[in-house]
Every structure is written in structure tokens, then in C-alpha cells.
Design a protein around this nucleic acid. Sequence first.
DNA 1: TATGAATGAGGGTTCATTCAT
DNA 2: GATGAATGAACCCTCATTCAT
Lengths: 200, 200, 200, 200
Amino acid sequence: MIDKNSKVEMNKLEKKNKLLSAAFSLFVEKGVKNTTIQDIVDRAGVAKGTFYLYFKDKDDLEEYLTTARSNELICDAISYANKNSNGNFEDRLINALDYIIDVFSKDKLLLNFIYKNFSFGVFCDRLTNIVEHSTVNVLEKFKNGIKKYNIKIENPEITLFMIVELTSSVVFTSIKSGKPLPIEELKPYLYKKIRVLLSN
Amino acid sequence: MIDKNSKVEMNKLEKKNKLLSAAFSLFVEKGVKNTTIQDIVDRAGVAKGTFYLYFKDKDDLEEYLTTARSNELICDAISYANKNSNGNFEDRLINALDYIIDVFSKDKLLLNFIYKNFSFGVFCDRLTNIVEHSTVNVLEKFKNGIKKYNIKIENPEITLFMIVELTSSVVFTSIKSGKPLPIEELKPYLYKKIRVLLSN
Amino acid sequence: MIDKNSKVEMNKLEKKNKLLSAAFSLFVEKGVKNTTIQDIVDRAGVAKGTFYLYFKDKDDLEEYLTTARSNELICDAISYANKNSNGNFEDRLINALDYIIDVFSKDKLLLNFIYKNFSFGVFCDRLTNIVEHSTVNVLEKFKNGIKKYNIKIENPEITLFMIVELTSSVVFTSIKSGKPLPIEELKPYLYKKIRVLLSN
Amino acid sequence: MIDKNSKVEMNKLEKKNKLLSAAFSLFVEKGVKNTTIQDIVDRAGVAKGTFYLYFKDKDDLEEYLTTARSNELICDAISYANKNSNGNFEDRLINALDYIIDVFSKDKLLLNFIYKNFSFGVFCDRLTNIVEHSTVNVLEKFKNGIKKYNIKIENPEITLFMIVELTSSVVFTSIKSGKPLPIEELKPYLYKKIRVLLSN
DNA sequence: TATGAATGAGGGTTCATTCAT
DNA sequence: GATGAATGAACCCTCATTCAT
């Protein structure tokens, strides 16, 4: 009985995951607006009705996806920074940002999808609602880093917020339009400004 | 003959303006995506076909609106700053930003519409295409200010770009979500950071 | 399971047939051009969207209908000729044509629809594409008849082509306009000319 | 006063002719159905409302055009045959047909337009209604030719009718689809058959 | 649970026709 | 007579959602 149930649960999870990854690939390929439910279920290999067993509607699925993927990316970036940085706190932070920027440079569609759906505030809110996936509390990590490295920043929360906003906004515009410079050329200026904001 | 023509032209302009303001109010109320052409013509009090006499499609109208409204706002801000600032260049810039932030604080829908449709790169491109309305070349104004006030900034274009991106991004998030602080409380931090970016 | 599927398939076939016969009756009544998809689905008693489950667009349905109905008519004519003719080849052919002309005389709307959509070349091409319905290769039948009855015709293909073109064109004009004679009075002349074309 | 009136009349005629030739060129280029009134008035260089001063609607204009152009073509063909034929009656007729076929071979769009709108019966009817243009009574010419050349044909009207129908139908199919042979290769067979129909 | 046929409101767009100028 | 801005009915087509199986 338990086995049977757990098998059923496994199947359900599998279906949901199929739908999620189908939707994600379609969202980044064609944009959320231009992706139909039919597209999603076709790629997931399930029937149209099945979609409604797992998600209320397209917006529901979209929100779910954004949070999960953003979180994933941040986890990867932090891991990368931990592996590749020496003790300096600023370097660790910039390494993490560098990782994210590289991912986006190589995958403009992903950038587009996450940026359109991402904001610091919304992201922080959502983190608390996600239970199925382990998440990172970016702010806590940042505060801990400051403490650990004994850095003096008056308002760590606000400073982090501004760095995140500045970076995301600048990176998005540069990658999308190449203005005012291509991202690779713009990076030094950005990192310099970030250091200024931190060192203040 | 001239009178007759000019009267007709006046009528046409009026129709176009009716459509523009109907569209604008709907866009900020319900979002561009959720506004139909039928909605727009209903509110403008014209027939559906009339829409297509003035705009190619919804995107055409949207682009027109965004550029016009953004430009208008920036002109107002510059005027305001000119009236209310003393000689200091930083103060003038921050006064202009302050004006814009105040407008947005009072009109979240306008903020939403402009932010969703605004980007530094796109905006600069569009400025050159607008002929019917007098426009401001923000970058030129900024460069002239720097020269006039004899300020030393290594890359004025990049610095202005970063200030615009930082400000717009931060203001949007704060006004929309109140995170990490309400905009009124956040302002001092933002202006302080802007001064840091400029002074460097 | 099989029963269930077959029942569903039956229903689908029924829907498609409803659409086909609704479309056909409308096409002959008002012409293809003046028949809207709304007209068709209204008469078929299905929803608009259902149309697009079965046909790509109106042209798709029209082609389907023309080929199917033309083919049906030719099959009937050949059957009729086989039943009612003695051994003579010319008589068999003229009997078949006679059958078709009679059908058309009694159903001018059918004539109109088929004539407007029928041409020897197009028809021969389409024959090869029909898989769902058994079809007749008219040309093969004709050639076989010539061989069987040991008739000497230099270019059977061209001769058949000319007979088909002459007959369809003459019959259409006569039935539609009664010019230069009503079809019943014109028939003897037509058949005489056909015999001339054959015997040559 | 008379001058003034006649000048006005001239202007009106000119406008009408502009509309006719604009419409004709568009009809053969894009088909009647795909040509809008806007297209016609644009090419004619007049305003939309002007169209309705001269024609009831598109059908009215179409009918006018078909008759006029068909008639023109036939006149040209007869002229050509008169110039290039010796005394033989059959040769004269075939020369005339040859002229028409050549025009059509070189201008498939014209063929398409005239064929779609042409039929012997309709044409004969219309001939009597045309007053603004001098017209040819083809049938009379044919009968006169038979008399003049002392040829024995039982029912000249029916024979001519069949020749016209056969020729137009065959030529249309061959030029449009190249089936069963390209028109140049098909011609000898066609002319041979026509001679058979005549000589009988 | 899973299916996918069926729905029909609603979208964008076209264009013949009118009518005030 | 000539204009062309304005109209709005009518068109085709999409697609989120439902529901009988």
C-alpha cells in the first residue's frame, strides 16, 4: 500500500517536473506570452487536461519557475565563488556576480526570462514560500560574510540591495543592447563602481 | 482652403490624441498586454477602424507613448532642476532625479508603465527618431554640465548610464514593494551612493 | 478500450462529415467565396473552434470537398455506364457522360460548384493524393477501354483531355445559360461531335 | 457653355478610364478578389469616394472590364486574321484563334482574368448591351464567312459555340498547368480537331 | 488520474461604404 | 464633382478552459 502510494507520488512528481522543464525551455525560447499551454503539454508529452491537475494556470507555473531557477543560479554562483576566491570578501562577491554574468552572456534567452521576472523584493519574499527546494538566504549569507571578514558597512541590507539592482540593470541593458559598451568591456567599470559602493 | 485643411488636420490630431490618452490610461490601469484595441477605441470614443488610421498596431502605439511620456517627464525634471538648484552640478542632477521620483511615488501606474518600457539604450536610440516633439538629449546635457561646472569624471557616458540604471531599478523596486525601505526613507541612501559614483 | 477508442473515432468522423456536408450545401447555395466559417459551423451545429480541429482553413476544406465529390460522381457514372451499355466503347463513354450531364441538369448548384473547382489537370494530380477514398484513374480506364475494344486512336490521352474539356465547358454553359440551346437539345450535337473526335 | 460642359465631360471620361485601367492592371496582377477599392483608387490617383461616382461597386466595374477587354481582344484577332490569311475560311478562323492563344501564352494573368470571367453565352448577351464601344458580332462574322466561302455547315451557331468552348477550355488548362502538353505542342492537335469539327 | 475533443469568447485586422467638407 | 476621414460589420483564427470518458 505504501509502495503503491509512493510510486504514484513519484509519477506525479515526474509529470510535474516534465511540465516545468518543458515550460522553461519554451519560455526562454519563445517568451512566456508566445508559449501556449498546448506547446507546453506537447513538449512534456502529456495531455492538455493534465496541465490543470498541477498548475492553476500559466501565471502560476511561471511564478514557480522564476523563483526556482533564480535560486538555482544564485546557489551555483555562491558555490563557484567559494571554490575560486581567496579570503577577500569583495573578491568573493564579485566572483559570484562574475559567474552569473558569464552564464547570462552565454544564454541571452535565460537572461531575458529571469530578468523580466526577477526583482530583489519579490525574490526575497518568495524564498520563504518555497519548501520543496532548499534555498539560500542571500541576505543572511551576505551579512555573515561581512561579519566574518570584519568589514564595516553601515547598512549591509541596503548596500546589497543597491549592488544587486545596479548589477542586474546594467548587465541586462548591456547584454541586450550592447549599450553603452559590450558587457565584457563594461565589466571593469561595473566592478570598480561596486567596490566603491562597498568601500564607502 | 488653408483653413479647411487646417481644420481637418486639427481634427485628426485630436483623434490621435484621444487614442493616445485612452491607451495610456488603459495601459497603466491594466497593463499593455491586457488592454485590447477594442478597449482603447471604446474609451477614445472612436470606431475600431479609426485606430488603424493612426497606428500600425498596438506595439506601434506603445512605442510612441513610451518615448513621448518618458521624454516629457525628463523635460519637466530638467526644468524643475534648473529652477530650484543653485550652481552645484551634483545638486542639479539629484534635484532632477528627485522630481522624477516624486512623480513616480504619486503615480505608481505611470512608474509601472514607464519602467516596463524604458531602458537607457532604447531611449537614447529613440530620441533621434522623434521629430514631432522637441526632445532633450540627456547625455549631451550631462556632458555640458560636467564641462560647465568643470567636474572631473573619467567616463561621463558610463557614469551617467550607471546612475540611470541604479536609480530606475532601485526606485522601481522600492515604490512597488516598499523593500528594502519605502522610497522616502531610501532616498538619502540612494543620493549618497549617487554622489559617491559621481565623485569618484 | 478498443470500443472506447472506436466510439470516439466514430464521433470525430461524424463531426467531420457534418462539417463537410454543411460546407457543401453552403458552397453550392451561396458560393465558396460568400460562405463564412461561421456559416459552416452554424449549419453543422458545432463551435467555431471545432472547424479548425478538422481543417486547416476554408481552402483546405474546399479542396477536400471538390476532389471527393468529383471522384464520387465519376465513379457513379462509370458504374452506370457499365450496367447500361453494350459492348461498344463509344457508347459506354457517352453513357457515362450522359449520366453526369443528367445529374448536373437536375442539380445546377452541384454543377456550379464542381465546374468552378474542376479541371482535368488538377483532378489528375489530386487523384494520386487521395488515400482515404478509393479512386478511379480515369485515364487508365480510358486507355484500357481503347485497348480492350481494339480501337485506333493516335493519342488517347490528348483525345480524352479534349473530350473532357469540350464536354464540361459546353455542358456548363448550356445548363447555366441555355445558350445556344438547352442541354437536352444540345446533347445530340455534342455526342455527334464527340464521336467525330473519337473516330478520327 | 458648351465648351465648358464638354470639358467637364472629358474630365469625367478621363477619370473613368483611369479607374478602369488601374483596376484592370490590378485584377490581372493580384486577382479580382485580392484587389481592394483602395488599391484601385490609389493607382488611378483619385480619391476613394470618386470610385462610387462612376461605378456601383467592384462587381459593376468587373463586368464592364471583362466585356470590353474580351471584345477588344477578339477585334484584334479578327483584324490580324484578315491581314495574314489567304482566302481559306478555316485558315482564317485558326489564324484568329492562334493570335488569341499567343496573346494568352505571353500574358497568363490576362488569360486568367478573361477566362474566369468569360463564357460564350454571357459574352453574346453582353455584346448587345455595349453601346459606348463599337463591338463585333462574332457570330454574324462567322455566318457571313461561311456564306461567303460557300462552306456547308449544318448548324454554324452550334459549331462555332463548340469550337469556342473547346478552344478556351483546352487553352486555359494547357497554359495554366502545362497538362497534358505545353500549349505550343498541343496546338497542332487542337487545330486538327477544330478542322475535324468544321469539316463535318 | 489522465485524456483530448469540444468549446466560444475574444483577439487583431480589413475594407466597402458613407458623408461632411 | 471630388475628397478622404471615419465607420463598424464582418472576417479569420487562437487558445485557455472544461468535461465526458
